[in-house]
Amino acid sequence: MRRCGSLLQVSTDFSAVIQRFYHLQSERMETYRLFEEGHEAYLRTGPHYDFEHYKQLVHEITQAFSGISREVLQIKERLQQQFDRADLSEHIEKLQSSEKEKLQLTAELQLLRQRAQDQPEDGDCQEQIQQLKHRIIKNREALSEIMQDFKYDSEESG
Rank of each mutant, 00 (worst) to 15 (best):
A116H: 07
C4H: 15
V17N: 11
A41S: 10
D149C: 08
Q128N: 09
I92H: 00
Q119F: 14
L79D: 07
I136V: 09
Q130T: 04
S157E: 15
S97L: 14
I61Q: 11
C4F: 14
G46Q: 04
H59F: 14
E27Y: 05
S11Q: 15
V17H: 08
H134W: 04
A116C: 07
Q131G: 12
E108V: 12
I68R: 05
E156W: 10
D118E: 13
Q63D: 12
T45L: 01
K100Q: 14
L7R: 13
R70S: 10
H39T: 07
A64I: 03
Q128W: 05
A41G: 00
D124G: 01
E156K: 15
R70V: 06
S89C: 08
L57D: 04
M29Q: 13
E156R: 15
E93N: 10
M1C: 07
P120Q: 10
Q104Y: 08
E127D: 03
S15D: 09
L109M: 09
R28E: 10
E37T: 11
R20S: 10
K138D: 14
I68F: 13
I18P: 02
L103S: 10
G158H: 07
R20M: 09
R115P: 00
Q130H: 06
R140Y: 05
E155A: 08
R85I: 04
V58S: 12
Q25F: 02
G123S: 08
D87L: 02
A116M: 04
Q117F: 09
I18G: 02
M1Q: 09
A86W: 01
K55Q: 15
I146G: 02
T12R: 12
R2H: 08
D13E: 13
R140E: 14
Y54F: 15
T12W: 04
Q110F: 10
Q25P: 01
S15I: 02
K100A: 14
H91L: 02
R113E: 15
H91K: 05
A64S: 14
H53F: 14
E121C: 00
H48R: 14
Q117D: 08
A16M: 13
Q80L: 12
Y49A: 02
D87K: 02
L79Q: 07
G38F: 05
L112C: 02
Q117T: 11
Q80S: 07
L34D: 10
L79H: 06
C4R: 15
I18M: 08
Q96V: 13
L132F: 06
E27T: 03
E127N: 03
I136K: 05
L111T: 07
D84C: 10
E60G: 00
E121I: 00
S154N: 07
C125H: 01
C125R: 05
E127F: 00
Q19C: 05
Q96Y: 06
V10F: 02
L34C: 03
I18L: 11
K100V: 13
S89N: 02
I18E: 06
E108F: 04
E37C: 00
P47G: 00
R78P: 01
P120M: 08
E99M: 14
E37W: 03
H39C: 11
L103Y: 11
Y49C: 05
L105F: 05
G67Y: 03
D149V: 00
G38R: 08
R113F: 08
V17T: 15
M1F: 12
